[in-house]
């Protein structure tokens, strides 16, 4: 859970991903509104991203008003990003599916680290980020994370304006 994981991503690398991504398939997006996956998805949806729920177990037809897909292979178009909220042992199989559909970025949520996945994503020339949350990274660069007293480690002499505000 801690970010003291010795994994470093250049700020520009993450910013480029967040600013060019338009659609995010969230694998494991819960149908319960108080789950962390729902918190992240709701925030990202509100910032203008198209959210595509991928959830093999829910009975719900929609989550956060968006059509639910049972698997990555069922998606009717290619999302810019596949974001995984899944159990550790399932990471690799979902990453392989995401590579197969040629998404641009594969993102593993906080607590998920998998070197094998990183290797195959890199060799497929797909952006890969692990043990991070796109909501927290977005808030880091928008300045909102600091509103909660959280250390963003960002120093900048530029005015921060929220992209979708």
């Amino acid at each position: 859970m801690s970010l003291k994981d010795n994994i470093y991503y250049a700020d520009d690398y993450i910013k480029e991903i967040l600013f060019t991504t338009k659609s995010i398939a969230i694998v494991g997006l819960s149908d319960k509104e108080n789950r962390p996956s729902s918190f992240a998805a709701k925030y990202l949806k509100n910032r203008g991203y198209k959210i595509i729920p991928v959830n093999p177990v829910t009975d719900k037809k929609t989550i956060l008003g968006e059509k639910v897909y049972k698997s990555i292979s069922e998606l009717e178009f290619i999302p810019d990003m596949v974001d995984l909220f899944v159990k550790k042992e399932k990471i690799l199989s979902f990453v392989k599916e995401a590579i197969k559909i040629k998404t641009k970025t594969i993102w593993l949520q906080l607590g998920l680290i998998d070197k094998e996945s990183e290797k195959i994503a890199n060799s497929a020339n797909i952006n890969f980020i692990m043990n991070r949350c796109p909501k927290i990274e977005y808030a880091k660069f928008s300045g909102e994370l600091g509103w909660a007293g959280v250390n963003s480690n960002v120093i900048s002499n530029k005015r921060k304006l929220l992209k979708n505000d």
Partner: peptide
């Protein structure tokens, strides 16, 4: 894609961390 993190020194962080130009007025 891993890269070494840049870290500013104490004096720089004591002046700048957490603060940025106010977005509307500057």
């Amino acid at each position: 894609m891993t890269k070494k993190k840049n870290s500013y020194g104490f004096a720089t962080r004591a002046i700048h961390s957490g603060a940025a130009p106010e977005p509307i007025t500057g």
